[in-house]
Design a binder for these strands. Structure first.
Lengths: 253, 253
DNA sequence: GCTGTTATGCGTAGACCATACGCAGAACTA
DNA sequence: TAGTTCTGCGTATGGTCTACGCATAACAGC
């Protein structure tokens, strides 16, 4: 079966073993002065305070009062540290759906929970994700999402696709609003003035003859009003859940 | 009205003026040896060949037989170059919907067009997007999307939200499949063996008591079969369009 | 045609970054 | 006590972007 036949099947990449706490410490040698969770927590602290761009190995080491290269005894590379940061950054999953919730209420709460995490820690969006979920907390989120769909008639593969769809949407929406916030801070414009400023820029660039539909949108004042980003989020989420509902009804009937 | 009152309203950021070709060259001084499009094309060539990580100022300069710092006479920063790369990387928009297409057929073709571009140039996904669309080609795409919804009863704001929803989905799905491709190349595993390998890893890590729903998905063999990623894409797209259709019908009826 | 102005090309250098390597010393085993 | 192995970390390499300044080329006006 397994290509590598030790006693426990194929070997896992060291980064993943680290994420699951499966690395046993050898009994010899000096006692370690730090630990992986200590380092990851420090890195998360830096990201929370100054953004992901501020997370360098030397900065994290400084946060811990250690030398830069000392970190490399615990994490194999910066990418590995980033992966562990994402895991702890997301935090524990929101828990299984309440018994009285139907699938739609459950998934709505699930989506809002991720939404809240990403609003609080927008640096999570800047970490280049490098593969499907594999760390413990991420799989916890996935598990809780799947449980929301437990009673439905969807096939298992369809459940996965649905969750992928929703989590993608949540990330996307969070990326957009965080860009507005970051652009606002970078340019010194008030956050609620960003979209109007964008609309003004568009109307200066757009030739109504070449962009008639876009011109109509601008004329309708869509961008000049600053609507609540949470309403925008809720709109898209309801569209997606409507689509899922249509599928469930088709599978049921 | 405008804060800056020269003859043409508020000033545009230089990066955007460059994207729209609005920078007039002063008559004095030596004739420039390159041009912004030349540089952007070279950068796109590098990204096509060796990925976005290979795009450094020195590499692009080498591609042109110029010195690194010569580029800074044309682009203000690397970020500006990246923005221009995205604009030309996307290429011209797919054009307005065919007359016989209803909104759904039109948006489907629109989404597949972006899908194809992102499949061909997956480095576009790695460019950190820094704001709403503002470059000419990007607005061309937006315009064509809006035209697909022209006959519908949706409000202008709802049209924008719908397109945002779809384009976000396309990017997300493309990101996922490109990650599989890149991971496959990095680890030397065949592309159609990536998902089974992932499934095997999960089943080694997951405790069925703590992750029952996830365990059920794995047991159903969802991840061991390699399904066509295009089918997966079509599934999610249809879900979203179902949701949009439900909204249109509600607005109509 | 000459001079002053202005833009270009680009060399140098600074401030970061990740990380490969090697060494001194600590903590364990035998 | 001797040997082994692991930790902390100093040093060094090669990469990144880009600020600055200088020589030169091309034009404007006299």
């Amino acid at each position: 079966m397994a290509a590598q036949t030790d006693d426990s099947g194929p070997v896992l990449p060291p980064a993943i073993e680290s994420a699951w706490g499966l690395r046993e410490r050898p009994p010899k040698g000096p006692r370690p002065g730090m630990s992986v969770p200590t380092i990851v927590d420090a890195a998360v602290r830096v990201a929370d305070a100054d953004g992901l761009a501020a997370v360098s190995m030397s900065r994290v080491a400084k946060e811990l009062g250690a030398a830069t290269m000392a970190l490399y005894r615990y994490v194999g590379s910066k990418d590995e540290l980033l992966m562990l940061m994402v895991d702890t950054g997301y935090g524990p999953s929101p828990g299984p759906p309440a018994p009285e919730d139907n699938w739609r209420a459950g998934l709505t709460r699930w989506a809002w929970a991720e939404h809240d995490v990403l609003r609080r820690r927008s640096w999570l969006l800047h970490v280049p994700i490098s593969g499907p979920p594999i760390t413990p907390q991420q799989l916890g989120w996935l598990e809780d999402g799947l449980r929301c769909l437990d009673g439905t008639t969807l096939a298992e593969g369809e459940k996965m696709s649905t969750l992928l769809l929703i989590t993608g949407y949540v990330r996307n929406e969070a990326t957009l609003t965080s860009q507005i916030a970051e652009g606002s801070q970078a340019s010194g414009v008030a956050p609620n003035e960003m979209m109007p400023a964008y609309g003004r820029m568009l109307s200066r660039l757009i030739d109504p003859a070449r962009f008639p539909a876009l011109h109509r949108v601008l004329s309708a004042g869509v961008l000049t009003q600053d609507d609540d980003p949470d309403d925008e989020f809720a709109f898209g989420l309801d569209r997606i859940l409507d689509g899922v509902e249509a599928l469930i009804e088709r599978r049921t009937g």
